[in-house]
């Protein structure tokens, strides 16, 4: 798992590559939390995430809860069909702004 961060205006874009599971989720959280605290608006580009485990879903929700407490926002873009399906069935999807493309994701945080 690897995270690349870029900036677009006041929004941070974090592109995640690889699998988010019980081992990598804490690492991802440790990297993403300071970014959220710095900018308050984060787009997570999930298009290169091949697998998102239960622990990964929880990491996302922790980010969401932190963002909400700070009046910030987290948007997800580029979810694969299977991950989106899993997130929907387990109740995680409804918390997030979800978009197909990066541009749409940026727009959702505007």
């Amino acid at each position: 798992m690897n995270i690349t961060v870029s900036q677009r205006g006041e929004v941070s874009i974090a592109a995640i590559l690889g699998e988010i599971d019980g081992k990598t989720a804490p690492l991802a959280q440790a990297q993403l939390m300071p970014i959220l605290e710095a900018t308050n608006k984060v787009v997570l580009d999930m298009s290169s995430v091949s697998y998102l485990s239960s622990a990964g879903l929880r990491m996302l929700l922790v980010l969401y809860r932190q963002a909400t407490a700070r009046s910030g926002k987290v948007a997800l873009v580029g979810l694969s069909e299977e991950i989106k399906d899993t997130m929907s069935m387990t109740g995680f999807l409804g918390f997030f702004e979800v978009s197909d493309t990066l541009d749409a994701g940026l727009l959702s945080l505007a």
Partner: peptide
């Protein structure tokens, strides 16, 4: 009974 049972997420699916 959970579509996500293969990922071990049956608890979340039922609660949802």
């Amino acid at each position: 009974f959970a579509a996500t049972g293969k990922f071990g997420m049956q608890v979340d699916e039922l609660k949802t």
